[in-house]
């Protein structure tokens, strides 16, 4: 665990929606066999959650997102990652799996305001009108890989690699700039 990330300042921007980088979020990348009941039991024991349905995020104290047919991403307290990952590795012992702490390798942004769907429409090749609340969509935001989901009609979460977090922050700033409303949502 790096201390450096704790010292980075929280970035935010207020345009016609508000953009905020959520620093020091714990993130745990998990791969395994979703059809195995041992995997599901291990997940429940160590993370305290059931397996999310395809393309869904379980919105709870520790959010858990379905990333692909064999990959999950858990969000938790930055300080709790180590313990959760240790427990999960222990529970999954003997099974084909992967558990990696990616807290410092991913960046999380939250966008809030009434026009959050429009912010996505400006940046990603996604049919955003059809996206349900709690549904995760992996895609690209302009030139970088990203994933996002709506936690409500006015709240959007976006993750990307932290190596391109500056690019993402600038993108979101530009697309939420005052007087740049399109008004199509």
């Amino acid at each position: 665990m790096s201390d450096q990330v704790n010292e980075r300042e929280m970035r935010s921007f207020s345009g016609y929606v508000r953009v905020c980088e959520k620093m020091t979020t714990g993130m745990l990348s998990i791969r395994g066999d979703f059809s195995s009941s041992e995997f599901k039991t291990a997940l429940f024991k160590a993370v305290g959650t059931r397996l999310p349905n395809e393309k869904k995020v379980i919105l709870a104290q520790n959010n858990i997102a379905w990333m692909s047919p064999d990959e999950l991403l858990v969000f938790c307290d930055y300080a709790a990652v180590y313990k959760i990952s240790k427990n999960l590795k222990m529970e999954l012992k003997g099974q084909h799996h992967l558990v990696v702490n990616v807290s410092d390798a991913r960046a999380l942004f939250e966008v809030s305001g009434s026009a959050v769907r429009e912010i996505v429409a400006k940046l990603a090749p996604v049919n955003i009108k059809a996206l349900e609340i709690g549904e995760i969509r992996r895609t690209r935001f302009s030139q970088i890989a990203a994933a996002f989901w709506l936690t409500s009609e006015a709240n959007l979460s976006i993750i990307c690699f932290s190596s391109v977090a500056d690019y993402m922050f600038n993108l979101l700033k530009t697309s939420s700039a005052q007087n740049s409303e399109v008004g199509s949502f």
Partner: peptide, 11 residues
């Protein structure tokens, strides 16, 4: 066919 997403060519 794996995740069911209607992906654009650029994805």
């Amino acid at each position: 066919p794996y995740c069911g997403i209607e992906a654009d060519e650029t994805e």
